[in-house]
Amino acid sequence: MSIKIGTRGSKLALAQTETVIKKLGTLGIETEKVIISTQGDTTTQVPLHQIGGQGVFVRALDDAILAGTIDCAVHSMKDIPAYRPSGLFTAAVLKRDSPADYIAHRVSLGNVRVIGTSSTRRRAQLLRHDPDITIRDLRGNVDTRIRKMSAGEYDAIILAEAGLTRLGIRIQGERLPPEKFVPSPNQGTIAVVSRADPSLMEILSALDHPQTRTDVIIERAVMEQLGGGCFTPLGIYCRDGHLIAEVLSLDGKRTERIDTVIETVEQAREQGRQLRSKAQDLIDEAYKKLGIFVHER
């Protein structure tokens, strides 16, 4: 059986897909790579929240699976929205790489004044850490971001450490501790999404890492209760059942946070509901300031 695997065309997406292809190859499974362009790849001049949030990297691949053009797709799991079309299944969650953010800088860290990121979460967390820094929007693939920093447009940029590792990039900078700079839910995790075909799902399940799946399911359970996606500055991170989740104001001055041990998905949902109740004003404020209408939520 040969499996058609869909992927975005960025270097990072291709590297992640090659990881999946190699793992399947060791199992004797033949594969065919299919590159599909997404709105997130073609619209790079505006922040993600202005073009639909994290789902812009996923919809075209979802459509291709449902249309039968491909059998499955490889994603950074943090890009997969909370609510999914029927007929799709997360067939495998690979062992998690580093969940942390990484600050790459061209000047000494003490002299960093302008930081590039388009993430509302990263912006809020950076401003909480240092209200005097300037945050400027930055989109594009990893190479583009690094090139813009090297050209002097930014003193520093924020990247996912896992992405740098997968691309084999070594660059001056520091890992930001995930306990303080709480990452996006599922950051550092590769997922394989397939159509709900039992034989296909059985093959792909051989790539699954149970502990990582458990942790990211807990994170997604909290995310589903909070809502917000790319619009609201929120971080959610679970490791071996230890959950940290926070919602911030856009300027980083106010935070609602939970730090607890979770044993079941229902406990995670309850924690998410409690956090949303405490942080509802921050969530509403983010939507209002970013101009998101209620029917888009």
Score class of each variant (00 low, 15 high):
6 G>F: 05
12 L>V: 06
16 Q>V: 00
26 T>M: 00
26 T>Q: 02
29 I>E: 00
34 V>C: 03
35 I>G: 01
38 T>D: 12
43 T>S: 04
68 G>K: 12
70 I>N: 03
79 D>V: 09
82 A>D: 12
87 G>Y: 00
92 A>E: 01
95 K>R: 15
95 K>N: 11
95 K>Y: 06
96 R>M: 10
99 P>K: 07
105 H>V: 14
110 G>Y: 09
110 G>V: 09
115 I>N: 01
118 S>I: 08
119 S>G: 08
121 R>S: 01
121 R>G: 00
126 L>R: 02
129 H>G: 02
129 H>M: 09
139 R>V: 11
147 R>M: 12
153 E>D: 01
154 Y>G: 06
155 D>H: 11
159 L>H: 05
163 G>E: 07
167 L>P: 01
169 I>V: 14
170 R>S: 15
175 R>E: 15
176 L>N: 05
177 P>L: 06
182 V>M: 02
190 I>H: 04
191 A>R: 00
193 V>D: 03
197 D>W: 08
197 D>A: 13
199 S>K: 13
201 M>H: 08
209 H>D: 15
219 E>C: 13
224 E>P: 00
236 I>F: 03
237 Y>L: 04
248 L>C: 11
267 Q>M: 07
267 Q>S: 05
274 Q>K: 13
275 L>S: 07
289 K>S: 12
293 F>T: 14
294 V>F: 15
297 R>G: 10
